[in-house]
């Protein structure tokens, strides 16, 4: 990822060497955690968050390397800088965790989320929904005479905004994947 990659167990490049004082301000961080894809690994990560009282705003997990049996867990969490630092260190203690990257402090990153929206309506509402979907570059993936299912991809804020617009137009159901994120640039 970036030059600030936090290798497991290392403090050399970790964020607390860069910050002078602890603050009480809650921050939102996106963490990318590379883990062995084995039974129970997600339970370990989630159990850590619930057991120690940390927040999870969003969590996405899928295998990313079939031959190497690696999965990537993307977690969006909030907390004071001290808590965020603890979360990273505690994640690093889990044996099947290979690497923890804090995309929020390690430089610019892109975050994307996919969502499906089911919108019910006829007449003007239906036309307006379709027009807004076009503006948001959402695709229609299912249609009946009285409903649409839109597929939309983007930053979480964009999806929030789309949801707000769809609500008065007959929004029935939402399915969101949670955030997937990568650091910008060529380094991995």
């Amino acid at each position: 990822m970036s030059a600030l990659q936090i290798k497991k167990g290392s403090t050399k490049h970790s964020a607390y060497n860069l910050r002078s004082t602890f603050s009480d301000v809650e921050e939102r961080h996106t963490l990318a955690v590379i883990v062995d894809n084995e039974a129970g690994v997600l339970a370990r990560v989630i159990g850590l968050f619930s057991g120690r009282g940390y927040n999870i705003e969003s969590l996405t997990v899928a295998e990313i390397d079939h031959t190497g049996h690696l999965s990537r867990i993307t977690i969006v969490t909030t907390g004071t800088p001290q808590v965020i630092e603890q979360i990273k260190a505690q994640l690093g203690r889990i044996i099947p965790v290979h690497q923890v990257n804090d995309l929020t402090v390690e430089g610019p990153s892109v975050e994307r989320e996919l969502a499906l929206f089911k919108v019910e309506g006829t007449g003007d509402k239906r036309v307006e929904a379709l027009r807004l979907a076009d503006i948001f570059r959402a695709n229609v993936v299912d249609s009946t005479l009285g409903s649409f299912v839109f597929e939309i991809t983007g930053a979480p804020e964009k999806i929030d905004a789309f949801a707000e617009l769809m609500r008065p137009l007959g929004l029935l159901e939402v399915a969101r994947t949670g955030v997937a994120a990568l650091a910008r640039g060529a380094a991995a």
Binding site: G9, S10, T11, S14, Y16, E85, A89, Q90, G92, R93
Partner: peptide, 17 residues
């Protein structure tokens, strides 16, 4: 030896893992 012990309770001015 455990990075998570450092800064957990008391902020360390000189952390050594």
């Amino acid at each position: 030896i455990d990075p998570s012990s450092i800064n957990k309770v008391i902020r360390a001015d000189i952390p050594i893992v």
